[in-house]
């Protein structure tokens, strides 16, 4: 690189350029994968084997180790989608557009998992697969927001126009996040209240809490991995006519 002086600021700017981001993501991804797998192994062992059964719910509560991380990620990824959408609208940053587009299907997958695992937990505990209460309904709306974003972006041919239209939808949908979070406090609902995020004292035993946090970490690294993989595809596709992609694909093919 001939850019001088090489301060942290120029480095940061270069990171935002597609070829550097593509390369850096490729270097980081194996490490992210290893951390993710280690967290999954530790979390699953702790949650399914070491943690004691719940005194009220017995063994059925073990769905918590996938249900709660999925639900957390469904909201976290939406926050990422909205934030990168705002950045892409304000600064026209291509990389932010790519992250937003890459995040939506992953977020939809977590939302789907939160709904289905919640249903499989609700049946033995509440006696029903589904109720139209505030928590469940607002989470279902989140799934529709993700699907709406994906459909809108896919329907518009021009890449940048599509990203901009999607960004507006994503930002408007942010209003749903506090509704999901506070739904168990604002309305009477079948869904139990917060157990971990209560600030005074989480009402969950430490031997149950540690595997839950490990699983939450595993899900985070899973998102990081698949998001970066998707951004790399987005970058390759949108930069297909550039010289660096050309050298990359010809060197890979030989």
């Amino acid at each position: 690189m001939s850019q001088n002086p090489d301060t942290w600021l120029t480095r940061f700017h270069r990171l935002g350029s597609p070829p550097s981001f593509y390369r850096l993501a490729g270097i980081l991804m194996p490490f992210i994968a290893i951390i993710c797998i280690a967290l999954f192994v530790a979390g699953l062992y702790g949650g399914l084997v070491l943690a004691p059964p719940d005194y009220q719910q017995g063994e059925s509560y073990r769905i918590i180790y996938i249900h709660v991380p999925s639900a957390w990620m469904s909201m976290f990824v939406y926050a990422v989608l909205a934030a990168t959408s705002a950045i892409s609208l304000i600064w026209r940053m291509k990389l932010a557009e790519a992250v937003a587009r890459a995040s939506a299907p992953v977020g939809a997958a977590y939302t789907f998992l939160a709904l289905v695992t919640g249903s499989l937990w609700g049946k033995p505990m509440w006696g029903t697969w589904w109720v139209w209460d505030a928590r469940l309904t607002s989470e279902l709306i989140l799934l529709f927001l993700y699907l709406g974003y994906m459909a809108l972006v896919a329907a518009i041919d021009d890449r940048r126009t599509a990203s901009r239209a999607g960004a507006v939808l994503a930002i408007v949908g942010v209003v749903n996040l506090p509704i999901i979070h506070f739904s168990v406090e604002w309305w009477n609902t079948l869904h139990q209240g917060p157990t971990v995020t209560k600030f005074d004292q989480p009402s969950i035993a430490i031997s149950m809490l540690i595997p839950l946090l490990l699983m939450a970490g595993a899900f985070k690294f899973h998102y990081l991995y698949t998001m970066l993989a998707r951004v790399r595809v987005e970058i390759l596709d949108s930069e297909r006519r550039t010289a660096w992609v050309n050298t990359l694909v010809t060197s890979k093919a030989s």
Binding site: G58, E59, S60, I66, P105, V106, Y225
Partner: peptide, 30 residues
């Protein structure tokens, strides 16, 4: 699973499948 196997294991299996697919899809697409 204390009699809850028909709820717990499908939940885990579906989660494993979904997470695996979401990782494999972009790798294959690239």
């Amino acid at each position: 699973m204390g009699g809850y196997a028909i709820y717990v294991w499908p939940a885990y299996a579906l989660t494993a499948l979904t997470l695996a697919v979401s990782v494999i899809a972009p790798i294959r697409r690239r």
